[in-house]
């Protein structure tokens, strides 16, 4: 009899260990193999700067209200209030101690595209790596090269203030298992080159969907609602639906959208508001062809 109980207990222990091992295998940080980042050569710093503005790094990593050249000091420190707690944005200036000056391209690339930090830890998706995952290796290399040309800062941001269980990075493995993907967000019928470029910019470096797509209680995107807008996660108001079916820009032409991104003015000469002001100012640094590509893509996504 005792041996039966022992067997059951043993089976129980085995199940827990096996389950734990399986869960660990499924949810552990998964950087790219080291050779993924090898052999990319010297970065194209000019392209890196385009990606820097497309991604709007300054909107989170530069000091609040920084203007002009001060925007290029990516000292971090801004607080990002969310439903899960307050995130404090890190210093990504080239300072070797406080910033990312000692990082390798592989460390930077895995942070950008796999959400894995320099110690092999999971990063919080408040850093939008689930969008940047779509960036090409060459673009990541160029962006890294550009960031190294910016001024260093010794600022150290405070640690994140998150409640249990969100303060445990191990839980992020589960989040990634549920929501992380580098696949296209929407399937497009026979897209033109401009639409494909727009898809890359919007779904990848531009990370537009991070605000413009509604999220579920666990912080993942609601399926089938790509760019459909929703409540503002940072506070009052709503984030507009920017699909062709939305009332925000549904009636705009591609030219209207591109002009808005360049100048900040709607076709009625209303102007951008809230955090879109900064986004628009960042995007205004892009070549007109890229703004036209974003507009073409926004006209091609499914109506919601």
């Amino acid at each position: 009899m005792a041996s039966t109980w022992a067997k059951i207990a043993l089976a129980g222990v085995f199940a827990v260990v096996a389950g734990g091992a399986a869960a660990y295998a499924l949810t552990r940080p998964a950087p790219h193999p080291a050779d993924y980042w090898a052999g990319l050569g010297a970065p194209d710093v000019a392209n890196g700067e385009h990606l820097f503005w497309a991604g709007g790094c300054v909107s989170c990593h530069a000091p609040k209200d920084a203007k002009g050249e001060d925007q290029k000091v990516l000292s971090g420190g801004r607080a990002l209030p969310t439903a899960f707690g307050t995130f404090h944005v890190p210093n990504i200036s080239p300072d070797p101690e406080a910033g990312i000056g000692r990082w390798t391209l592989a460390q930077f690339g895995d942070a950008m595209t796999r959400g894995v930090g320099p110690q092999g830890e999971h990063l919080y998706p408040s850093f939008p790596y689930s969008s940047y995952a779509r960036m090409t290796r060459a673009d990541v290399n160029d962006l890294f090269g550009y960031l190294k040309t910016l001024p260093a800062s010794q600022n150290v941001a405070p640690p994140h203030e998150l409640g249990f269980p969100f303060n445990l990075r191990v839980t992020l493995g589960g989040w990634k298992l549920l929501f992380f993907s580098a696949d296209p967000r929407v399937a497009l019928d026979n897209p033109s080159d401009a639409v494909k470029r727009g898809q890359y910019l919007v779904e990848g470096p531009g990370h537009c969907g991070e605000c413009h797509t509604p999220r579920n209680a666990l912080g993942g995107f609601e399926s089938g609602q790509w760019l459909a807008g929703g409540p503002n996660p940072e506070g009052e108001g709503r984030i507009p639906n920017i699909t062709p079916g939305g009332k925000a820009i549904g009636s705009w032409s591609e030219g209207d959208i591109a002009n808005y991104l360049e100048t900040g003015f709607t076709p009625e000469f209303d102007s951008a508001g809230g955090s879109m002001v900064e986004v628009q100012q960042n995007l205004s640094h892009l070549p007109k062809s890229d703004l036209a590509a974003i507009a073409a893509y926004l006209k091609a996504v499914p109506s919601r």
Binding site: G237, R238, P240, T263, F265, S271, G273, G274, M276
Partner: peptide
């Protein structure tokens, strides 16, 4: 002139106008 005045629109809307 549009650029000067447009910057004023943006600065104020950023702080004091809700997203819709």
């Amino acid at each position: 002139a549009m650029q000067t005045l447009g910057a004023d629109c943006g600065t104020c809307h950023q702080a004091y106008r809700l997203k819709r």
